[in-house]
């Protein structure tokens, strides 16, 4: 079991490059992701209309030369809302992953370093969190805290803590026994110093590699919660809430639901393509396959 964590001990700065050179699909993922991030950043310059501007005269217009992706039931331009929605979806997903990474990695490193009964109990609870339906966990937390941007981030972050903790714990257990940690301990390093200066830097690349896969999951959860109505409150455009509005008009305005659906699909797919390639490149067992 301890062998499984061994490859993480060597630092591999060229891991991204390795992943890209081995896997053509990863290029597609990276290109798509770069495009989506660029669109989100340049939203004010790219969007043809104000995403919140209502135009009752032009409600539920199908896609046309004037409104490329049509308009919604308030006459707002779907393309502009889609472009601005990318900002919210990416920001919420990214913020949730950063929070989950901080909390999860801390729990994983401490649990793995302390070991014993404490470790067993922590891992037992994390196993249940891991098996608990992500959506329901997020849904319950968002429902109890109330709908707002911060609470949405917290709810999604909680659902992603367990995987981070597990990935951080495994290498910690083997690093704890390594000679350089032992050496440091022998001339008086405390546990905090060992964990932050010696263990953390040696496993951070594992954690970062996995985060692109979990970012995909976080963005999916954000969309699902927004779809249920627990996301960022209206009128802010998010992909999930756009689909929710589209679903209410599904019989007479297919474009409202279809375009944000495709946006979510492409984003999650891009992250998965990239994440898969990164994971394969960091796991020597899959390289031969």
């Amino acid at each position: 079991m301890s062998d499984a964590a061994a490859p993480s001990l060597e630092s591999r700065p060229g891991r991204l490059w390795l992943a890209l050179s081995q896997n053509r699909l990863a290029w597609i993922g990276l290109a798509l992701l770069a495009l989506i991030v660029l669109v989100a950043l340049l939203a004010p310059w790219l969007a043809p209309y104000d995403p919140l501007e209502q135009n009752i005269a032009a409600r539920l217009e199908p896609p046309s030369a004037e409104y490329w992706l049509g308009t919604d039931s308030y006459g707002r331009d779907v393309l502009s809302r889609l472009i601005y929605g990318a900002r919210v979806s990416l920001f919420v997903g990214f913020a949730a992953i950063v929070v989950a990474m901080l909390v999860g990695t801390t729990i994983g490193v401490i649990s793995g370093y302390v070991g014993g009964l404490f470790d067993q109990i922590v891992m037992g609870v994390l196993d249940v969190m891991l098996a608990f339906p992500t959506l329901l966990l997020g849904l319950m937390i968002a429902a109890m805290l109330g709908a707002s941007l911060e609470n949405l981030i917290i709810a999604i972050a909680v659902t992603e803590i367990a995987p981070f903790a597990r990935v951080a714990r495994a290498p910690t257990i083997s690093l704890r026994e390594r000679d350089f940690v032992e050496a440091c301990r022998s001339y008086g390093c405390g546990p905090v110093r060992i964990m932050t200066r010696h263990i953390l830097p040696n496993m951070m690349s594992d954690v970062v590699v996995m985060s692109s896969l979990w970012l995909a999951s976080a963005i999916r959860t954000e969309a699902s919660l927004s779809f249920i109505g627990l996301g960022v409150p209206p009128p802010t455009a998010t992909w999930g809430s756009m689909i929710r509005e589209g679903f209410e008009n599904i019989l007479d305005a297919w474009w409202l639901a279809v375009f944000p659906s495709l946006a979510i699909l492409v984003t999650v797919l891009a992250l998965n393509l990239l994440g898969d390639a990164l994971r394969d490149a960091s796991d020597p067992r899959t390289q031969s396959r």
Binding site: R220, A223, S224, I243, I250, V258, L265, V268
Partner: peptide
Amino acid sequence: SFPAFVSGI
């Protein structure tokens, strides 16, 4: 990559 509600819709 499909969220279940996206594929469902």
